[in-house]
Amino acid sequence: MTRAHSPSEDAQPFRISFVCTGNICRSPMAEVVLREHVARAGLAGYITTTSSGTGDWHVGERADQRTIDALARRGYDGSMHRARQFETDSFENFDLIVAFDRSHERILRAWAPNEIERDKVRMMLSFDAEQAHLRDVPDPYYSDDAMFDAVLGMIERSSQALFRQIAPAIRLGVR
């Protein structure tokens, strides 16, 4: 029987970047939600999350107020988020890059400098077997609060599934 132990103190954290269009709706939701899972599990030093957008329209802005409100309704704090654009030379800084729809996936894979970096790109819903067939997380930007809540629900399920996949390896000190 293998006994679980704490991650090695000199291990590099597992680094995840969530990437959507403008970094004000979907990707900040996922960053905040997964960060909360990580904190609750006591793994804050071992898994890091960031988010960004494929476009630069909102760089420096807060998350969309409807994003902040949807997060708050579920007990999360998204108020500190500031939008940024994904930098094409930052692939090597991440172990996993999560896209929210097929357009993000295509863009990120096109930006990747090689196959190793392209292989880091995964779709958000792919982590949750019950939602994987949907492929895309809808963009709630042109919709109402109900859609933001629905999208957050999809992201929570996928984030929880993602966390269940990576946490055991992190706890064992394996990357």
Rank of each mutant, 00 (worst) to 15 (best):
A41S: 08
A150M: 09
A83S: 13
A167W: 11
L96T: 04
S51T: 02
F100M: 14
T88W: 02
D69S: 09
G42R: 14
E61H: 07
W111F: 13
R82K: 14
I166G: 02
L96A: 06
G45I: 15
V98F: 03
R135Y: 04
L172C: 09
H37Y: 07
D139Y: 06
R135S: 04
I116G: 03
A146L: 05
S143I: 02
A161V: 01
G60K: 14
D89C: 06
D56S: 15
A83R: 09
R171I: 08
E156G: 09
D144N: 15
H81V: 11
R109C: 03
N114I: 09
P138Q: 06
I107V: 03
R135N: 03
R175V: 06
T67L: 02
Y142G: 13
W111H: 12
R122Y: 02
D149A: 12
V174I: 10
Y76W: 03
P138V: 05
L134N: 13
A132Q: 12
L125F: 05
A83G: 08
N93R: 00
S158V: 05
A167E: 10
P140M: 11
H37Q: 06
L125M: 06
E130N: 15
R175P: 03
G153R: 10
D56L: 12
E105F: 02
A72L: 03
R62K: 07
M147T: 05
N114A: 08
F163R: 15
V174P: 02
S103P: 00
Q131A: 13
F86S: 11
Q131L: 15
V98C: 05
A83P: 07
D145M: 15
R73P: 11
R102W: 05
R157K: 08
M147I: 05
Y46K: 13
D89W: 00
I155S: 04
V121Y: 01
D89M: 03
R122Q: 13
Y46I: 00
A112E: 03
K120W: 02
R40G: 09
A63F: 00
E92V: 07
A129H: 10
D149G: 10
Q165D: 03
Q165C: 02
F100V: 09
Q85F: 04
Y142M: 13
N93D: 00
D64M: 01
G153S: 10
A72Q: 11
M124V: 02
S158D: 04
A99K: 10
L108I: 00
